[in-house]
Design a binder for these strands. Structure first.
Length: 577
RNA sequence: CGGGGCGUAGCGCAGGUGGAAGCGCGCCUGCCUUGGGAGCAGGAGGCCGGAGGUUCAAGUCCUCUCGCCCCGACCA
């Protein structure tokens, strides 16, 4: 146990906001001496930060153990060969922290452990009788993020709980999946976070069903749509568009090419030609495994790239660069369109395009657009799909009521992987009938270190952090106002000992500094309950206060344990959202 | 990877046109003070991110480099 006297605690708090902190959680965690940056996205956890991390760690571990997941520990260093068997050495590529050993062999610091754990099970599990099995670990992960930011929220080295389950049938996978889901909700509730569970897009991890556990926060990077009427909740990337598109009965006019000098964007075109954006067909050029693809959508709408990737079953899909577009089509960006595009280009269109009559599209040469382009007559579509990015106000796909939108921080993500990894790695077992079958797998991640930031985003005020009791570094801080007053010092020590004996985690602020600094530090660090030993010490009385409340209660020092327990029982900090 | 910004004391920052490295906070010593970041006096602390160049002279100008931060990497 670390020293519980502030005078001896390694907790160098900062009065000023660090220059690189953009959000409250980052600022307060640094100022409050929970963390210190070493380099971009890499942090020291100071004693206070480690205490908070440990508490979250413990909650996550307890919930995993409770559903029969077995804790193990996998290596951080992983050989390239393993990643090459699944193709992820290249697919996941740039995000990995790669290095070579002295013999020149390639390695990575593990960003995740599907390969390692599948390799393990492939070698150790031979029979359906050994299934199912679920293992997990809580360990450091390494991802060379495009842009580390927001302190612990997007770090390059971070702590993650990752669990993997192996099954011989889908029902068994579903059973574990549901248990995980419950366990994750328990974690959210035990910590005290406001959260949503949403249907998610499985992205680069792969698989066919997945849910995200999102802690609500305006600074979050996940966009969530939910329905107040029926309870639908999903990532905007996952939400299908449920509205109808009306047929237009307009008469088809002859195709016409018009000058649009330096007019490129939908905004500009609409303004220049005096047409509404609904009359414009936006053409976007992508490059995937099978070459270039043109995606069409109505001018006023946004395309959802995840949907496009899904429709084309191509995770490597990306938008073509302006150079690539010109090289492939001979047309500069801004003037590209479906009229007269080469037969080699696959055209996939959102349903919104189907009924547009007399549309405006790119003129297929610099500074030109076509007016009155019509489907069938002037351009073709190879394939129709729902590619529309659904937004707040669009109809709920389940009940049709208008959707609401919010933002959050992704803390947990669970996936039904199926046989994606086991097939790639030939990880098989023998079933009842003597057939070799690939494992059916699930994987389940939780961002342990990121959770710290998510909590601070929900629990703070303008003075600092307000920890929920569940993960506070200490439950109580005993503040001795004037260390030079013998009765205060002695009573403070006594109160401290009493609380400690009662099993309460207490920090004694016995520093020889002015009371203002002690109060401000206590607020900044965010300890839930403050016991102040000051003027009333001579009468054997102390003051008790909750971090989030202005109310101060004077109690007999003799009854401090009782009073603190009562305060802890009724402790209920407000959430900022 | 593209654009922008910043690297000067532990932290936050100032240092036109080149000419003796500064301020606030923090830190150390002493006195004094103690219910919301006290006061006085004294003091320590710098290869001005690094390398090269221009110059009699560079924190300042030029070139390169490293690091950090922000925006973007998408609506053609």
């Amino acid at each position: 146990m670390i020293e519980l006297r502030f005078s001896e605690l390694f907790a160098p708090t900062l009065r000023e906001k660090p220059a690189d902190a953009e959000i409250k959680s980052h600022e307060y965690l640094v100022r409050g001496a929970f963390i210190r940056k070493v380099t971009a996205g890499v942090f020291n956890y100071l004693p206070l930060g480690k205490r908070v991390l440990d508490k979250i760690w413990k909650i996550v571990k307890e919930e995993m153990d409770a559903i029969g997941a077995q804790e193990m520990l996998m290596p951080i260093i992983q050989p390239a060969e393993l990643w090459k068997t699944t193709g992820r050495w290249d697919d996941y590529g740039p995000t990995m922290m790669k290095f070579k050993d002295r013999h020149g062999r390639d390695f990575t610091l593990g960003p995740t452990h599907e390969e390692v754990v599948t390799f393990l099970m492939k070698n150790e599990i031979n029979s359906y009788k050994q299934l199912p099995v679920t293992v997990y670990q809580i360990a450091n992960k390494y991802r060379d993020e495009l842009r580390p930011r927001f302190g612990l929220l997007r770090a390059r080295e971070f702590v993650m709980k990752d669990a993997y389950s192996f099954h011989s049938d889908w029902n068994s996978l579903d059973e574990v999946y549901q248990k995980m889901r419950k366990a994750y909700e328990n974690i959210m509730k035990r910590i005290g976070l406001k959260y949503l569970v949403i249907e998610a897009s499985s992205g680069a991890i792969g698989g066919n069903e997945s849910h995200e556990f999102v802690s609500l926060a305006p600074i979050g990077e996940s966009n969530v749509l939910y329905c107040e009427k029926c309870g639908y909740q999903a990532s905007d990337e996952k939400t299908p568009y449920a509205g109808k598109y009306e047929e237009q009965s307009e008469e088809e006019l002859p195709l016409e090419k018009v000058d649009t000098p330096n007019v490129k964007t939908v905004e500009q075109v609409a303004k220049f030609l005096g047409v509404s954006k609904e009359k414009i067909v936006k053409s976007l050029v992508y490059i995937g495994r099978e070459g270039i693809v043109m995606a069409l959508i109505r001018g006023d709408l946004d395309l959802n790239e995840e949907k496009l990737k899904e429709v084309l079953s191509d995770q490597s899909l990306r938008m073509a660069t302006p150079e690539e577009v010109e090289e492939e089509t001979g047309v500069p960006i801004g003037f590209i369109g479906p009229v007269g595009i080469g037969e080699n280009v696959r055209i996939i269109a959102d349903e919104s395009v189907r009924h547009i009559k007399n549309a405006v599209v790119g003129g297929m040469e610099k500074d030109k657009h076509y007016k009155n382009a019509n489907l069938g007559r002037d351009f073709r579509v190879n394939e129709w799909a729902d590619l529309r990015l659904v937004k707040e106000g669009d109809p709920c796909p389940v009940c049709g009521a208008p959707l609401k939108g919010t933002k959050g921080i992704e803390l947990g993500h669970i996936f039904k992987l199926g046989t994606k990894y086991s097939e790639a790695m030939k990880a098989t077992y023998m079933d009842e009938n003597g057939n070799m079958k690939p494992f059916i797998m699930g994987c389940y991640g939780w961002g342990v270190s990121r959770t710290i930031s998510a909590v601070v985003e929900q629990y703070h005020d303008d003075k600092g952090i307000i920890w929920p009791l569940s993960i506070a570094p200490f439950h109580v801080i005993v503040t001795i106002v004037n260390m030079n007053k013998k009765e205060q010092k002695e009573l403070g020590e006594k109160v401290y000992e009493d609380l400690k004996s009662a099993g309460i985690e207490v920090l004694l602020d016995d520093r020889m500094i002015t009371p203002g600094m002690k109060f401000n530090d206590a607020d900044l660090i965010g300890i839930p309950i403050r016991v102040t030993v000051g003027k009333t010490a001579a009468e054997g009385k102390v003051e008790i206060k909750k971090r989030y409340s202005k109310e101060r209660k004077v109690v007999e020092a003799e009854r401090i344990v009782e009073a603190v327990k009562e305060a802890m029982d009724s402790y209920d900090p407000p959430v900022v959202l």
